[in-house]
């Protein structure tokens, strides 16, 4: 039983990261019906930018651990958000009136470009975060080993997701985003500046993805230029699992996928882990064709 709970916490920690990245996919999809395949690479940029800022500015030395990391998170989120906006401008906006899949191919091209840019700037070798920044405390509770950082990561992801949810549900801008997601034309008629909504979505999604990248860098220590591909794919799966376009869905999907992976590895087979996760996804989609929380959309006739 102890092992089960240990695996559960393992899964939740991984799932929290998936969920944060999945939010970026789902927000963009909600408004633009576009699968932003370059989103995983923005996550990688978060990890690399975080490393550069951390080592060049020595934030944690100057400001202390807590404040230093906080400033770092904000800086990375800001920079990656700007990158996301540039991406939207250059690779997606020209294709907004085109068939949906054209933008997907553009996204794939952008992904290749972003990934290889990183490789040329930083080199192909793994980059490593300095390992003395974070407290390496491990909590030992109820027979479970919980490294403090893992707990913090889960808490931070949940906090960011909650903040986003409240923002979308309670503020005027959030309402505008939801309106644009339902019907862009009608939203425009209601006086909503859809272009600004899209820009906003492309600032927020990448910011969260960048934060996730930074957290992965800080906690796991090792980053490389292809990591966004793996995480991006998992997060996209999570977004679909929860029902793409649906913000709570991305959170649920992310956490659930992490748990499925951990338990699948623990009780079925490690080598088949990813296959098990995809199989569960397919079974869920057969039963619920629009994901767990996705709304059924009536076909327009």
């Amino acid at each position: 039983m102890e092992e089960f709970f240990q695996q559960l916490t393992n899964g939740l920690a991984v799932g929290g990261i998936y969920a944060l990245i999945a939010l970026g996919y789902t927000m963009v999809y909600g408004v633009l019906k576009l699968i932003n395949f370059a989103h995983g690479d923005l996550f990688t940029y978060g990890a690399y930018l975080g490393l550069t800022l951390l080592t060049s500015l020595a934030l944690t030395d100057r400001l202390g651990f807590a404040l230093g990391v906080l400033v770092l998170v904000l800086m990375v989120m800001g920079l990656v958000a700007v990158l996301g906006a540039i991406l939207e401008r250059a690779a997606y906006r020209p294709l907004r009136e085109s068939p949906r899949l054209s933008a997907v191919v553009s996204a794939l091209g952008a992904s290749i470009f972003l990934q290889n840019t990183l490789m040329l700037i930083y080199g192909a070798r793994f980059q490593v975060y300095p390992d003395n920044i974070l407290p390496a405390t491990t909590l030992h509770l109820f027979g479970l080993y919980l490294p403090l950082m893992r707990v913090l990561i889960v808490l931070a992801s949940v906090a960011m997701m909650a903040a986003l949810y409240l923002f979308i549900q309670k503020t005027r801008i959030g309402t505008a985003i939801r309106a644009a997601a339902i019907d862009q034309g009608a939203a425009r008629l209601m006086g909503i500046d859809v272009n600004r909504v899209i820009l906003l979505v492309f600032l927020m999604g990448p910011a969260l993805g960048g934060a996730a990248g930074l957290m992965v860098g800080l906690y796991y220590g090792q980053i490389n230029f292809t990591m966004g591909w793996v995480y991006g794919m998992k997060a996209f799966t999570a977004a679909i699992l929860g029902g793409i376009g649906n913000i709570p869905g991305a959170m649920v999907g992310g956490l659930l996928l992490g748990v499925i992976e951990a338990l699948g590895a623990a009780y079925l087979s490690i080598a088949w882990k990813d296959a098990i996760a995809f199989l569960v996804l397919i079974l869920i989609l057969i039963v619920r064709p629009t994901g767990l929380l996705g709304e059924r959309v009536a076909d327009k006739i």
Partner: peptide
């Protein structure tokens, strides 16, 4: 990145 499930 995360191999804790396997390590457990």
């Amino acid at each position: 990145r995360d191999y804790t499930a396997i390590l457990t």
